[in-house]
């Protein structure tokens, strides 16, 4: 229990940029420490996509629920959110004495976040390239292009892609 709470405390403290940065990290830690199988990870990822809320929070809630029931769900969610709560609170208290150049700082955070999101992408998608899974690669590229070119809600791509997989893969 303590181990899992510590993991979420750690993940919470580096989840910049809306959670996508740490999905890969959650996957690698949970699978390598045998908390989840790859299939279970896929289940949680999909459930997180089709329910409201930030993805990292969804994952924390679900993993807590799976191992320690309702109380576990509350605790893992709370520990994931504890670092942002502490940091926002201390920011609000120290606001006047912090002299950061905001635009540089946000730009630097974006760079750091880009690295973490790339790692998430690598962790989730490298298997398609290694296994030379042409169908999956085409689907990924098609969804990427549609997301860039249109303003369709991502939820349709997720559910649509699920149905395409039933028919084609």
């Amino acid at each position: 229990m303590l181990n899992i709470l510590f993991i979420f405390l750690y993940i919470g403290s580096i989840s910049f940029g809306g959670g996508w940065a740490v999905v890969g990290l959650i996957k690698d830690i949970m699978i390598s420490q045998n908390y989840l199988t790859f299939t279970e990870f896929k289940e949680i990822l999909t459930a997180a996509q089709i329910t409201p809320g930030p993805i990292a929070v969804n994952m924390a809630t679900y993993i807590g629920y799976k191992y320690y029931g309702f109380i576990g769900a509350i605790l893992t969610t709370f520990f994931l959110l504890l670092p942002p709560i502490i940091i926002i609170a201390s920011y609000l208290m120290l606001k006047k004495s912090i002299k950061l150049k905001k635009e540089y700082f946000i730009n630097s955070l974006a760079l750091g976040t880009a690295v973490l999101v790339f790692i998430t992408l690598y962790s989730l998608g490298a298997q398609f390239i290694i296994n030379f899974d042409i169908k999956a690669i085409i689907l990924v590229l098609a969804i990427f292009i549609l997301l860039v070119k249109t303003r369709i809600d991502p939820i349709f791509f997720i559910i649509g892609s699920g149905f395409i997989a039933i028919l084609v893969l």
């Binding site: 940029g17 809306g18 996508w20 999905v23 299939t39 896929k42 289940e43 990822l45 999909t46 996509q49 089709i50 730009n107 974006a110 760079l111 976040t113 880009a114 999101v117 790339f118 998430t120 992408l121 989730l124 998608g125 398609f128 999956a136 689907l139 990924v140 590229l141 098609a142 969804i143 990427f144 997301l147 860039v148 991502p154 791509f157 997720i158 559910i159 649509g160 892609s161 699920g162 149905f163 395409i164 997989a165 039933i166 893969l169």
Partner: peptide, 30 residues
């Protein structure tokens, strides 16, 4: 079997979505 295939499809879409998030972040860096 169907649920499993559906999940695989959703997983693939997630990879597409992640590449889009990465694209958006990198586009906005100075």
């Amino acid at each position: 079997v169907y649920v499993n295939k559906f999940l695989n499809g959703c997983y693939i879409a997630t990879v597409g979505l992640t590449s889009y998030v990465l694209y958006k972040i990198m586009k906005n860096i100075n």
